[in-house]
Design a protein around this nucleic acid. Structure first.
Lengths: 164, 164
DNA sequence: TAATTTCGGACATATGATATCCGTAAAGGA
DNA sequence: TCCTTTACGGATATCATATGTCCGAAATTA
């Protein structure tokens, strides 16, 4: 079980877009070059983010992507679900249904009334989600500016603006 | 991102084995029939559990699988890791390495010093693991005996003992 | 000895992740 | 208006992993 590489790309891209000046849009090709990942495949991830309403794509020269909302409104979970979809990591195929000794009610396993195993797994899933929901893009920016010297960040800024 | 079906099978199988009387061993074929899953493929999952030291397989007639330890010693995480392996759900490919504006130290992303993104993801992963570590096979048995009428459980018991 | 069982390996198939390519439409600049 | 740039959507190819099956070897018991 492993998250797609696109998740890593999407998170870093959103982090970049959150730091770009208002009104500027960054093309997929620039984001791809910046991160050293294949442009066409990254484009798919960005399209997913756009469909989820996290970023907005604009056409034409000087077009590209920008954040749709304030960085404080975007959680890690939003971004991850845009890429991975919203299905849970554990799916209950209900193999208790085949248990020759259970009857009717005991066999059921639904979201509302999960079986003993599914309940534990889904609770764990929820713990994962809760943590990801608690971290916002704005938190990421803050940590970045704490960890990375300002002149380095400015250099990145400049590199980016140079090609938008 | 989705856990293998084998995880569901392994959890239910361990739950069954935990309820089997001391000294009895249950063959893979019986566990497969009980749950209605393909015998040969389930066998692979059981082999993984055996290699992880969670269950013990014995050869020959009246052979089969039994729990290696007390149900109170076995956590959900133990079982899941036996099937899925121990690698984290998020792998950092370090795309910051390709960032043309970072130098030396800023590029690194290790377990000891994760980058900002990896840290959040790995913390979330740890929250997931912590929950799974907190639930033991004995807890499962307790919940089962609370939820399922005793006569049904006994029926399952009997069905099982009938073919071991 | 014969039947049963785990064990390990080899193999086949299906599904999803990764990646590339192309045509279309929209928008901006010359 | 024309050309370039860009996102968008679909089609396709490739690779890794999950799923599933089969077989022979070794061990154990009746």
């Amino acid at each position: 079980m492993q998250l797609k590489n696109q998740v890593e790309w999407a998170l870093h891209c959103c982090s970049v877009l959150a730091a770009v000046p208002e009104g500027k849009a960054v093309p997929a090709s620039v984001l791809a070059e910046f991160h050293g990942v294949p442009k066409d495949y990254l484009a798919k991830a960005l399209q997913n983010l756009a469909q989820a309403g996290i970023i907005i794509g604009t056409l034409g020269p000087s077009g590209g992507y920008r954040l749709a909302n304030d960085p404080a409104e975007v959680t890690f979970l939003d971004i991850i679900e845009a890429i991975e979809g919203q299905r849970l990591t554990f799916v209950c195929n209900g193999i208790r249904r085949n248990n020759p000794c259970l009857t009717g009610d005991e066999k059921r396993c639904t979201m509302a009334q999960p079986c003993v195993v599914a309940k534990v797994m889904w609770d764990a899933d929820e713990a994962w989600r809760n943590h990801l929901r608690s971290v916002r893009l704005s938190d990421l920016l803050k940590t970045l500016s704490d960890e990375i010297p300002a002149d380095i960040l400015d250099k990145g800024q400049a590199w980016m603006l140079d090609r938008c």
